[in-house]
């Protein structure tokens, strides 16, 4: 990547598109909408004087072509392999694109600012564990659980957080969902077998909230209805698959409990 940038620095058009794609890729990776990605790349290129900008993005690929007034031409594609929700980074990329369009600094400075964003984090990675525990236990109580269910949901929620951190990018998202859903189903049923007063359902629901793609489904349908048909269908498919994988992990855990 760094090497290719050295090469680009001799060619303004290529370098500009490369940087604009970096911003777009960053937004897509942090969970930004496809419309936002396309618009941002177009605005950045136009701010630097591009006469023609064509951008097409779906959730896993950005394709862009620009033509400058002097006739120089650049066309690049960027493959984006994983997306997640990182609202902090999304906001930073948004801020960067806003300031870049306003100030149009030299490309080298643009590059430096982008580089600084890549290193920034809103919170250390471990906050995932207490946050998952709080989320799972809150929703266990929200859906009718008592103190005991709440405490067990804290443990299982923390475990889901640990699974998420430990597997990180090593495993695909759907596999992570199956493992988390299986672990949650197994442990909550085990708890209700050990202590008969415990309602495994409420614990399980608390954990399901961590995995369920509810908001993703909503934004997927929005993309679909706002005209981003391909990105919208892919996101809808992703959400449906995630829901099916939760069911798969849960059913697997019920089968395991039945067999134990």
């Amino acid at each position: 990547m760094e090497q290719s940038k050295e090469f680009y620095k001799n060619n303004f058009t290529d370098y500009l598109l490369c940087l604009a794609l970096d911003v777009g890729e960053g937004m897509l990776k942090s969970g930004g909408e496809v419309a936002r990605v396309e618009q941002t790349i177009e605005l950045i290129c136009r701010a630097y004087g591009a006469a023609h900008v064509e951008v097409f993005s779906i959730i896993s690929v950005i394709n862009a072509t620009i033509r400058m007034p002097d006739g120089s031409y650049s066309s690049q594609m960027r493959r984006v392999k994983s997306t997640s929700n990182d609202l902090y980074r999304l906001e930073l990329y948004n801020e960067i694109s806003r300031s870049i369009c306003r100030e149009t600094p030299a490309l080298a400075e643009f590059d430096e600012r982008l580089h600084a964003v890549k290193k920034k984090r809103a919170y250390p990675a471990w906050v995932t564990i207490p946050a998952s525990a709080l989320a799972a236990s809150s929703f266990a109580v929200f859906f009718g659980g008592g103190l005991f269910e709440c405490l067990i949901a804290v443990v299982i929620g923390a475990l889901v957080g640990v699974i998420d951190l430990a597997l990180g990018n090593h495993l695909n998202d759907l596999a992570k969902i199956i493992i988390s859903s299986f672990a949650a189903g197994f442990l909550s049923s085990l708890a209700s077998v050990l202590w008969s007063s415990v309602n495994s359902g409420e614990i399980m629901i608390g954990t399901i909230m961590l995995l369920v793609p509810g908001v993703a489904f909503g934004t997927a349908l929005r993309d679909l209805l706002c005209g981003d048909l391909i990105a919208g269908s892919l996101k809808t498919l992703q959400a449906i698959l995630a829901a099916l994988m939760i069911a798969f992990g849960y059913i697997l855990s019920m089968a395991a409990i039945g067999a134990v």
């Binding site: 969970g31 609202l87 999304l90 859906f143 359902g201 399901i208 369920v212 908001v215 934004t219 069911a247």
Partner: peptide
């Protein structure tokens, strides 16, 4: 001065039908 998603994504969480999905499976 932040994208709307920053507030929308967490904000819709409480009505995500997690419990109905659970009872559907069960």
């Amino acid at each position: 001065h932040a994208p709307a998603l920053v507030f929308l994504v967490p904000g819709t969480i409480p009505i995500v039908p997690g419990s109905d999905l659970y009872y559907t499976m069960r």
